[in-house]
Design a protein around this nucleic acid. Structure first.
Length: 931
DNA sequence: TCACAATCATA
DNA sequence: GTATGATTGTGAC
């Protein structure tokens, strides 16, 4: 260590040195789907250029005082080829459409005034290494911007890495955390593993795990070599076989830090940008965004961009460049006369695909009334047909019925494809006007969701900002907000027309920006085409069908709960010695922990003493008040959320309850349900089940509920292909009992209730990416014992352990995990420096493939069921609800048995797994009985 | 009026 | 330990 007072001081006084690994970013940007689509009008590709420039821009923003130097590989062979002729021999030649972007990029960077280094005979890594070493010796804070893990060997007290595409920073501790070895061991580590891509030989079968193990044990490669004869097994032989060429691998993996450079880092400073040259280059390569920045004041980030940049999401930046919306050039028609309408109608009829949007009076599809429709066929040209604007002095509009009659064949055509944003809503609204929307091909909300379920919310304003870098007119901008918000029919036609036409226009643009990116991955595209888009009309039908509830049952229950609550409140106030609000956690804390001096067991994340259920449950053993609170909480929740509210939400039109299923909300692929949420209707408590009794079947009908048994564990068995688990399911065993028998080493029949309960907790924990700590808490056992259970589990089901390790690794390397059908879940925190966030992301990585595959499966089952129902064309069967692993139907009593059987079969065969998929059915007069 | 934290309902 | 949504109280706007 060379720490001294002087070097410490210089850290703070000098601006940081930013070394940019231009070549590594060039390659990576070249492979980013969004960027691949970019080119100039005459076909010169510009995606990689754009990617690198965006990255530089983001670096400039993050390090405003930084001294940025860009380093690129030179053409031709390097000294490593002399050392080892096969070095990088496996690399395919550089694609032409990448090569053609290098020279322009160099020109632009130079014009920007940034130092650019291209040194023949060595790689960019070596130049970076040399500059970093020089800076390190001077104690200058240095940041290497790269996506290449080999650079970790350069990290020191003053030198750290940043991956500007993922925003992950790595210092000395970060390297140790990520790789499991110190920066000074990285070369040894790389040498042991070898590198397929660069064709560097290593020890056969030695991956990161083994390399870390050996280096932890022996410290250095030399010591590993010296102790090679002690390593047992096949891997020991492999190591001994590799002994001779390990020194070569070591030399190849070593970044050269003494390259002779013309100028030292200290001498290389930024120059003033050559604005005329930059302008010309940006124009030549049609880099509109950058050009706009330039005209808005040099290289500063313009005000319109600061919004998007603030998120710090580099993907955001890249995507944004694609299709800058030039609204000034847009032409929006407001159609008030027949002839213009007929012109548009003709164009629409002749089109293959168009974007459209409905404007209504309410976001609630059951209450919404149509106010107008907008259409867009080509970018920048859109039209709005107002129908029922009825404010004072509103101009005369075309007759609604006439317009809809004209549009009906168009909207119902399966040949003419439609693009929309959240088309399920439009489907529901139009169906109120007897129009059955068809040809629903592209929903931009779902495109965005399938492309990246976690990157943004998928509403149009967010998508436009992210993918088009365009701030749309918000509904609130034209309608106001709060209690005084206008409904669409009250809005001035000029304003409304612009807003509505823009919606259609933006939808079209979004589709053009997102769909090609989505289509880059065939599996993601298939999730979109084969699952999500076909599901959309199915969900629309379920929503419109609704469910029947008996409001009287709920009203009675509200009454009796209310009485009990009043009693509890009096008791609680007596015990506390004063009156307080039982449902205020804050007041409760005060009473419990300060006035009654009850010990604090747990704190909330913010540090206040927790009054959560588990805490109160424990306290209830010793004190009377917590018990009262618990009962009060449980009951008031039921009353306020369910028994009071559900009857209020019944539709006047249908006398049924209509939820909204959201298809683009959850990260994992599940649906969610709101207004009301029908996916969290109580079942566990006695009181709660009474609420399910209010979900009834119509006269002469039964409720049939069919749920998948242990679907996530079955998926785990399938994905991990663990022999024990697969066998247990194939033999139809009670899985928790079987697990208990394995862990506690007893016969299946001798498993006690307690053992089965423990095994069940372990199985659940598994799905949630459990830790021994969490398991201990769940089972109220010691941490040690929980660890023993877990070890025993993995010993008995080794395939599961391997699968989990593989999943974690895959997540960390790729940044995402996938379901069985290729639905992708990105995990931005998977390589986070913050240990808690990283751990949380790892658990999500374990859980997502199982939860997500289960979601895929039930969605496929719903498609199969819906298909069958359409074929039957029998209104005595209706699919009414989906609750993650359960489908609920209303079936006429005459055909309950046969159709239930058919439905079970359809669900069982929704997909083929290596273990049986089992759906179990129940029926009754209400949802409770059907379970 | 709104956003947030705490709590609790489900799979 | 995973994934959601609704309600309530609370404090800032």
């Amino acid at each position: 260590m060379t720490t001294s007072a002087t070097t410490q001081d210089s850290d703070n006084t000098k601006s940081p040195l930013i070394l940019v690994d231009g070549s590594s970013y060039l390659f990576r940007a070249y492979h980013v789907p969004y960027l691949q689509a970019l080119s100039t009008a005459d076909g010169q590709p510009t995606g990689a250029i754009t990617g690198v420039l965006n990255m530089l821009r983001s670096l400039k923003k993050d390090y405003p005082t930084g001294n940025i130097i860009a380093i690129f590989d030179a053409k031709g062979k390097t000294f490593r080829n002399d050392m080892y002729p096969e070095y990088k021999a496996n690399r395919p030649p550089m694609p032409d459409d990448l090569r053609s972007q290098i020279a322009p990029l160099h020109e632009i960077i130079t014009a920007m005034g940034l130092p650019l280094i291209v040194t023949p005979g060595v790689e960019a890594d070596d130049v970076i290494g040399t500059l970093a070493k020089q800076a390190d010796e001077l104690g200058i804070e240095t940041v290497i911007s790269t996506g290449d893990k080999d650079m970790a060997q350069l990290v020191t007290e003053h030198v750290r890495l940043i991956n500007t595409m993922t925003d992950v920073e790595m210092d000395v501790a970060g390297v140790s955390e990520k790789f499991g070895v110190r920066p000074d061991q990285i070369i040894d580590y790389l040498a042991l593993m070898g590198d397929k891509v660069d064709n560097i030989p290593g020890v056969v079968k030695c991956g990161p795990k083994t390399a870390v193990k050996w280096l932890t044990e022996h410290g250095t490669l030399d010591q590993v070599i010296a102790n090679a004869d002690k390593v047992k097994g096949k891997i020991g032989e492999n190591l001994r076989d590799a002994l001779e060429q390990l020194p070569l691998s070591y030399r190849l993996a070593t970044i050269k830090c003494d390259v002779e450079l013309e100028q030292s880092a200290a001498e290389l400073g930024p120059k003033a940008p050559d604005i005329p040259a930059l302008t010309e280059l940006y124009q030549k390569f049609e880099l509109k965004r950058l050009l706009a920045d330039l005209t808005n004041g040099g290289n500063e980030i313009s005000s319109t961009n600061s919004k998007t940049s603030a998120s710090g999401n580099s993907e955001n930046e890249q995507a944004a460049v694609i299709a800058a919306v030039d609204v000034e050039k847009s032409q929006y028609d407001i159609i008030l006369d027949k002839s213009l309408f007929e012109q548009w109608l003709k164009k629409l009829q002749e089109s293959e695909v168009f974007a459209f949007d409905t404007e209504t009076t309410s976001v609630d599809y059951m209450k919404a009334e149509l106010v107008g429709l907008s259409f867009a066929i080509e970018l920048g040209k859109a039209a709005y047909v107002p129908l029922t604007h009825d404010y004072e002095d509103a101009p005369e509009q075309l007759d609604k019925d006439w317009v809809l009659a004209q549009l009906k064949p168009l909207l119902e055509s399966t040949k003419i494809k439609k693009i929309g944003q959240n088309l399920k809503y439009d489907t529901n609204v139009l169906s109120q006007y007897d129009i059955a929307l068809q040809g629903i091909e592209f929903d931009t909300m779902i495109e965005s969701y399938c492309y990246n379920s976690v990157a943004t919310r998928h509403n149009m304003d967010a998508l436009a900002l992210k993918y088009l870098d365009y701030k749309t007119v918000h509904f609130e901008d034209i309608a106001g907000k709060g209690a005084k918000q206008l409904t669409f029919n009250q809005i001035d036609i000029e304003k409304a027309g612009h807003y509505a036409a823009e919606d259609a226009d933006i939808t079209l643009r979004l589709h053009q920006a997102i769909f090609p990116a989505l289509a880059q991955s065939s599996t993601q595209l298939s999730v979109f085409n084969d699952i999500e888009m076909p599901l959309l009309p199915v969900l629309a039908r379920m929503e419109q069908t609704g469910v029947l509830i008996d409001s009287d049952i709920l009203a009675d229950q509200s009454l009796s709960i209310g009485q009990r609550l009043a009693e509890l409140e009096i008791e609680a106030h007596n015990l506390a010695g004063k009156s307080f609000n039982l449902s205020s956690p804050k007041q409760l804390q005060q009473i419990l922990f300060e006035e009654l001096k009850i010990p604090v067991i747990k704190k909330t994340p913010k540090g206040a003493p927790s009054t959560a259920e588990e805490v109160l449950q424990e306290l209830a053993l010793d004190y009377p008040l917590p018990k009262i609170i618990l009962e009060n909480r449980g009951l008031s929740k039921l009353k306020s959320t369910y028994t009071d509210k559900l009857p209020l939400m019944v539709s006047d039109k249908t006398n049924r309850l209509h939820t909204s299923y959201h298809q683009a909300v959850t990260a994992t692929g599940r649906l969610s349900s709101t207004d009301p949420n029908l996916q969290n209707i109580p079942i566990r408590s006695e009181q709660g089940r009474k609420i399910r009794q209010a979900f009834i079947a119509p006269k002469d009908h039964k409720i049939v509920a069919i749920d998948y048994s242990q679907i996530e564990l079955r998926i785990m068995a399938h994905l991990s292909n663990d022999k024990g688990l697969v066998t247990a399911f194939s033999e139809g065993k009670d899985i928790h009992r079987a697990t208990a028998a394995e862990i506690f080493a007893v016969e299946l029949d001798d498993v006690t209730t307690d053992q089965r309960r423990s095994a069940k907790a372990i199985n659940f924990g598994l799905i949630y990416g459990m830790s021994a700590f969490g398991l201990a808490k769940q089972l109220h056992i010691g941490r040690q014992q929980a660890q023993e259970y877990q070890d025993k589990y993995f010993q008995r089901y080794p395939g599961v352990l391997t699968y989990m390790e593989d999943t974690r690794q895959q997540a960390s390397e790729q940044g995402f995990v996938e379901t069985l059908f290729g639905r992708r879940l990105y995990l931005p925190d998977i390589n986070a420096k913050n240990g808690m966030r990283k751990k949380a992301a790892e658990r999500a990585a374990i859980n997502a493939p199982m939860q997500g595959t289960a979601a895929d499966i039930i969605k496929k089952a719903m498609l199969a069921v819906d298909q069958w129902l359409l074929e039957q064309n029998d209104d005595r069967i209706k699919m009414t609800m989906q609750v993650h692993d359960e489908l609920i139907f209303e079936i006429h009593q005459d055909i309950v048995e046969e159709s239930t059987q058919k439905l079970v079969t359809l669900m069982n065969n929704a997909v083929e797994l290596s273990v049986p998929l089992i759906a179990e059915a129940g029926s009754g007069d209400n949802w409770d009985e059907a379970h």
